[in-house]
Each structure stands twice: as structure tokens, then as C-alpha cells.
Amino acid sequence: MTQTVADPVLARRPQSRVWRKLRNHRSATFGAALVLVFIVLALAAPYLPISDPAAADWSAIRQPPSTAHWLGTDELGRDQLSRMIWGARASLMAGVVSVAIAIAIGVPFGILAGYFGGWVDAVISRCTEALLAIPFLILAIALAAFLGPSLTNAMIAIGIAATPVFIRLTRGQAISVAAEDYVESAHAIGLSTPVILRRYIFPNVLPPVLVQATLTIASAIIAEASLSFLGLGQQPPAPSWGAMLNVAKGFMTQAPWMAMWPGIAIFLVVLGFNLLGDGLRDALDPREE
């Protein structure tokens, strides 16, 4: 019987359709490029011919963009371009790492709550609701203050503060996926619960989580700014976009460029992650071709 089967079919390795689809997804590649530019800039900061981001120049305070300072200077005369590039490190880290923490905690708990229900759901959901009752930023501030001021602790604090949203989102999605016929068919086949969770529930709860993640990256960058402003995040004089934005809001009329650059950068990074996330969602769905 097996001899009649064409050999090339049997030999064919299931190629990565996800990767191929992602590459062909135009807005996703644009988003990825955008994100990549910022990441490369952030990583290359020590090797670029830019001035020290912490070096104050009292003779050039709040200078508009010029040939000497391409993006102008801030209230202490520090070069904005240099601070933008160095700040990208803190901001990207704060955005990506904290959201990664939130997903890493939130998605498994959400799946457990949604799939098993009962007292597991009751315990997880009540804890989630308790956390959700506290405003996001207040919670992040409280956690950061508790953990001690540093960028790492700020990322952890933001990540935990963002977790409840992911638990809720995943739980709801898991409840609806668990009721699908194909999950029942997995039981009928005799698959073990871990396999069902990994292969049936997880991939089918992921799409809205990805979209939420791209949006949360933006709030996380802003939250890092707020924590920095309170001295709980990036420690001055080391720059971060959020911290720059926070300082700049006092000089909106005198030196609008101070706010403009970090604003534009945050906008572009968030746009990049959004497009990438959308593309990833499409690429992960075999129904989209």
C-alpha cells in the first residue's frame, strides 16, 4: 500500500509557512524594519560618533536643531540626538521586556483559569480582579517602589502591573476555544491534557493576545517614563524617551523639539510593533493565505 504513495510527498518536510507568510506580508516587513532600525541604533550607541548623552553644556541650553546638534539640546544643554539613541535602549527594553513578562505570566494563568474553570478559575480570577481594581500606573509605582529604583525593577513592576489584562483576555478566549468541537475531538482521540493545552488551546488563544501585546508595549514605554519621572525607573542622568518627554513637557512653548523627538520615536516604535504584531497574527493563521 505504501509503495503506491508518491515518495516526494512522504519526503517533503513541512516547511515553515509562518516565516514565508511573514516575509510576504508587506506591512509586517515594514513594521519589522522599523523596529529593527531602533534596535540596531540602540545596540550601536557606544560605537556611533555621538557626544556623551550625559554631558551638559551650559552655553547651549534648549538650542533648536542645528548642524552642531541635529536634534537640538535639552534644558541642560545635552545633545538630544545622543540622548535619543542612548534612550532607545531603556525604552525598548522597558517596552519589550515588561510585555514579555506580562505575557509569560498572564497567558499560562489565563489558559489554566479558562480551560479548567471551577475553583482554579475562581482563585485566579479573584486575584486578577483585585489587581485590576488598582490603576495600572499606581500598581506599577507601588511595585517599583517596593522592589527598589532601577530600570530592571521598573520593567518587572510594569510587567506585573500589565499582567491582569492578559490573564483576563486569555481566560475569555480559552473559555470559548475550550468549547469548540475540535477540542472535544482531541479528547476523543485520547490526547493528554498538556498536549491539548499546547496544541489546541494555546495557538487559538494567541491572536488577540498578540494584538494586545503590541498595544501594551506603548503603555509600557510611557509607564517607564512615569516611573523614571518619579525616580523609580531609569536613573538620571541616563536617558530614556519617557524621561525626556516628561522633562520636555515643562518647555512645550519654549522648546517644542524637546518633546517632539521622543514623541515621534515612541510613535514609530509602537507603529512598528503594531504592524509586526498584525502580520504575525495573520502569518500564524493558516486560514489567511
Binding site: E184, S185, G190
Partner: peptide, 23 residues
């Protein structure tokens, strides 16, 4: 789970009973 080897089930709706994300 082992017994399921001997007893299998065919579902009514062929559209909802196959995981859309598996080949």
C-alpha cells in the same frame, strides 16, 4: 486515554471539529 484506541468518535460538523491550525 488508552481505551480510546479501541473506541473512536466521528463528529457531526466537519467544519468545527478539526483544529484549523493543524495540517
Amino acid at each position: 486515554r488508552d481505551l480510546r484506541r479501541d473506541v473512536q468518535f466521528i463528529f457531526q460538523d466537519p467544519f468545527s471539529s478539526l483544529n484549523p491550525r493543524l495540517s
